[in-house]
Simulated scan of single mutants.
Amino acid sequence: MALLFLRRRLCMFTAEIKEVIRGSQPFCSSVAPGRQRVNGVDLYYEQTGRGKQAVLLLPGALGSTQTDFGPQLKSLNKERFTVVGWDPRGYGRSRPPERDFPPDFFERDAKDAVDLMKALGFSKFSLLGWSDGGITALIAAAKNPDLINKMVVWGSNAYVSQQDLSIYNAIRDVSKWSPRMRQPMEDVYGAELFARVWEAWVDGISHFVHRPEGSICMELLPLISCPTLIVHGEKDPVVPGFHPQYLLKHIKGSKLHLMPEGKHNLHLRFSKEFNQLVEDFLED
């Protein structure tokens, strides 16, 4: 039964990657690229729009502006929002350095993200975090309450369970993925580097299962004071449904929006619906 469950999860994950391929096609030419020195690293970012509200997009594991947020950089309202996408250190075009995963890698990403926005001149901003980027957003919001306006997270978790660990291990070996699954990341990293960094990510995220209750940032959730929207696809094969319920329970005043047909990459597959949901929440 367990093997059948993991096979089903892997098949669903394959479909997710196909959507990432479609979502990472070239987008609007009004996006301006740049680099900013932050905490000793040259971070790559892309900025678009001229609205009063600044919004930072935080990508998932090994993710980048190129792979993760094409529809958001293209279509979020540019009159209302100034949107910044970034590649965390060691990801995408923020290389060197080569990515590593020390025990505090989420905290490091959160500090880099906040310091990047401050360096770009934004005194207050909102966070849109997907998957690992959602975890980073949770930490950033908890540790910088005066800087974060609002936050949207999806496909994210505050702890690692044994069920999560089984899912991670089922997708550890990228040689077992179809070529179509591997394509987006191999385009960014090359085949050898992608395989190595992905396995290092699995090891890094799996480490948290050995902490009390598998905590990544459980203890920080009560410190989050900004309005928070949690979005979850009910067909997400990567993040089980008990994770958004946990976030809802422990982030004061947060709201949960379920998308019945949504999977892990719901912001790509249902980008129009997702973007409208985000715009409405940020402007409410």
Rank of each mutant, 00 (worst) to 15 (best):
L76V: 15
L120W: 04
I205K: 06
L165E: 06
R7L: 14
G90L: 04
L43G: 06
A195N: 07
N265W: 00
Y246R: 04
D100Y: 08
V152E: 03
K263T: 12
H264P: 02
D109N: 14
E234F: 02
S123W: 02
K249N: 12
G190N: 03
I139W: 03
A195R: 09
K263D: 03
G262A: 05
H210Q: 13
K272F: 00
V188I: 13
V83D: 02
A54T: 12
K78P: 00
I205W: 04
S161L: 01
G241W: 14
G233Q: 03
G85H: 04
I167W: 04
Q66H: 11
M1N: 03
R180M: 13
Q162E: 15
P222T: 00
F125G: 05
V114L: 02
D68T: 05
D173N: 15
H232Q: 08
G241F: 10
P59E: 07
G233R: 11
Q163M: 10
F101I: 08
E46N: 01
R80D: 06
S166V: 06
F27E: 05
P96S: 13
P96V: 13
R50I: 10
C226I: 03
V278M: 11
L116N: 14
P103D: 09
W130S: 09
E79W: 04
F242K: 13
Y246P: 00
L4H: 02
K263R: 15
S166R: 12
A191P: 07
A113P: 08
K143F: 01
L43T: 01
T82D: 06
K255Q: 15
I251Q: 05
D146I: 07
I251E: 03
G204Y: 03
R182W: 00
K252Q: 11
Y159D: 05
T48I: 02
K78H: 13
K78W: 12
D42W: 07
I216A: 08
A141W: 06
L73P: 01
I148G: 08
K249S: 10
N149F: 12
L229F: 11
P260V: 06
N275R: 12
F81Q: 01
H232D: 10
S24M: 14
P260I: 07
I251H: 06
A15T: 13
N169G: 06
A142Q: 05
N144H: 15
V239Y: 04
N39L: 12
R99I: 14
F125E: 07
D146R: 13
R211A: 11
W177H: 13
S30A: 03
L10Q: 14
G214D: 11
E273A: 13
P212N: 08
L138F: 01
V160N: 08
R95D: 01
K118M: 09
Q276F: 08
F69W: 15
P212L: 06
V41Q: 15
K111E: 15
